[in-house]
Amino acid sequence: MNTQEPGMTLIVKTITRLTVGLILLFGIYIVSHGHISPGGGFAGGVIIALSFIHIMLAFGKEAAFKRINQKAASFFESLGAIMFLTIAILGMVSGYFFLNFGMKGEPFELFSAGTMPLSNIAIAFKVGSGLFMIVVILVLLKIDKKEEEK
């Protein structure tokens, strides 16, 4: 066990380094294909959040915060919600709240389904950063506690 560096053992770190990019890419794939295959903003957002949580578990919290800090996560969470609401309100301008306006395209094509892909991306922002924040808050509370005891 390496006590100087934070995080887990060398095996875990190496495997994480290899897989974390793939996990992130897979999350982005799920988000972008949400309107033509199972999955979507929520599932993809969870996977994206998991890739950051993975880094945090393997390398310690500093390594994860170097990539995305709490302020940025909180900002993205609000931004995702506002984006989603804006898409819904834009639908209202052209007829009804949440109306799916714009080019519908062909079925089973990536660029189709009007506002659906955009909504999926907004939800992915919201869910990804929100889930990351939940884990960070629950973990950091515990860390603070242990530091007090010492």
């Binding site: 939940i134 808050i137 629950l138 509370l141 515990k142 506690k145």
Partner: peptide, 13 residues
């Protein structure tokens, strides 16, 4: 569940 877990941790604190 996340909210209740956070509250339970604060209660423990």
């Amino acid at each position: 569940t996340a909210l209740i877990a956070a509250i339970a941790m604060r209660v423990y604190e």
